[in-house]
Design a protein around this nucleic acid. Structure first.
Lengths: 239, 239
DNA sequence: GACCAGCATTTGGTTAACCAAAATAAAGGT
DNA sequence: ACCTTTATTTTGGTTAACCAAATGCTGGTC
């Protein structure tokens, strides 16, 4: 309904600064490893406040593009110029991920997560996953919204996979998943029993340490969403 | 050599603030959707400067946990409390990812990336990937370090996969990969021809639109690193 | 009584001044 | 001539004051 309003182009000032930093680096004389101009100089040259430059550097540092040493300076990290060129532009666009890519990637991560969880789960992991599943079931039975508990169950699987990066990436895309689901109104109240059964089946495969079956069960569980995302993509392409 | 020095526990103040915010949210009365205390109150209550609270909120906002509206307040985003509990703790630890998880996850992403690239690549993508491969080859032939060009080739494959999220995630973990490689000195100068051949083979599979073969070629290409990461993991567990 | 204009307060955003650590330059001693 | 030591400048980090927009309140008007 308010999707039309979302298109207000908010060119946040920090993004413009990042863009200028990008051209500064690409234009040449900033090899990886040597330090870029101090914050004051950058602020002055770009005609903006120093705090905004600071924020831009923070964001770049968060992505590992630069490394700032206190009271010493900010250096560009090991990643090279050629890679940076494509990198920074997409850092800016990382939020506007399209729904299809989002779901597609989620399926990949979840499948592997279930696969590794089946191989590596401990007894404690089983308890955690079972508890999450029960909370999910309880909310469904009382007719409440169970989106949180649904995600919590998937998160517990990721924990059982013993792969911290896999779990972190899943958590990174999870908020986008939720937002997309809400805005697209996918979470309608039909099919309240089916996902519950699928969750139970996934858990059973993990308990049995059958990795292939767990991955398949997860694939099937997410297949509906995947199909839906393809439909959405088709309808959106008409716009 | 300086790995011993890396263990200096730097409990950055902003992380402590995030931790306190977490307990604030979990402790109860902050339902998702309503706004948390203003920055000044938080700074006063925690006994820290306001700018640090500000940075913590920025970081949380970046992860989509909260949403800050200018001149109005900061609200916690849609994601629920139960999910947040596990989420924020790992946001703090997202940087210290262990090498094995890093490589393992990279293999997953790269395999799928090659798979989709084979299915969806355009003629323009082929040109881009070929150029990256040539640049890689040129640097190798002249005896220079080709890490950047190596990654650039993989990045072009991700672009050809037409999955923006997949590409973004790969770019998120790439800096960590590079840092780990450097600190562990994996990139020794032996085997300079083998990866080049593997790159060519991967590209050929993608051009042929043979998705399975492309994924297998990528798997084989990264198998050495994967094996090495398992060794490292074993040696590190002795420490 | 409902509604709206206008004022005061709240709140995130911004600026400028200041601080301490680090790097650099300079001086002095060997 | 070289190294050590010290003083100065540079640099990121921090604090406090200020700004503009947004919210809530108040009083008046219809």
């Amino acid at each position: 309904m308010l999707n039309n309003l979302e298109r207000i182009k908010i060119e946040k000032p920090v993004d413009k600064i990042i863009e200028q930093l990008r051209s500064l680096i690409i234009s040449g004389d900033l090899k990886p490893g040597d330090k870029l101009p101090p914050e004051r100089k950058l602020a002055e040259r770009m005609g903006v406040g120093r705090l905004q430059v600071r924020d831009a550097i923070r964001k770049l540092e968060f992505y590992g593009i630069v490394k700032t040493l206190p009271q010493s300076g900010t250096i560009v990290a090991g990643l090279g110029i050629s890679a940076l060129e494509g990198l920074i532009t997409d850092v800016l666009k990382i939020e506007q991920s399209d729904f299809k890519s989002l779901v597609e990637t989620r399926v990949i991560l979840e499948k592997q997560s279930a696969y590794f969880a089946a191989l590596r789960r401990t007894d404690e992991d089983i308890v955690e996953m079972s508890n999450a599943l029960e909370a999910y079931q309880a909310n469904i039975n009382s007719g409440m919204n169970a989106v949180e508990e649904d995600l919590l169950f998937h998160l517990k699987i990721a924990e059982a996979s013993k792969n911290s990066v896999l779990k972190s990436l899943m958590m990174i895309i999870t908020p986008d998943i939720v937002n997309s689901f809400i805005s697209l109104e996918v979470c309608d109240d039909r099919n309240i029993e089916k996902p519950l059964d699928e969750h139970r089946r996934i858990l059973q495969c993990i308990i049995n340490q059958d990795a292939e079956a767990a991955a398949d069960a997860m694939q099937e569980h997410l297949q509906d969403v995947l199909d839906y995302s393809n439909q959405v993509d088709l309808t959106k392409s008409k716009k």
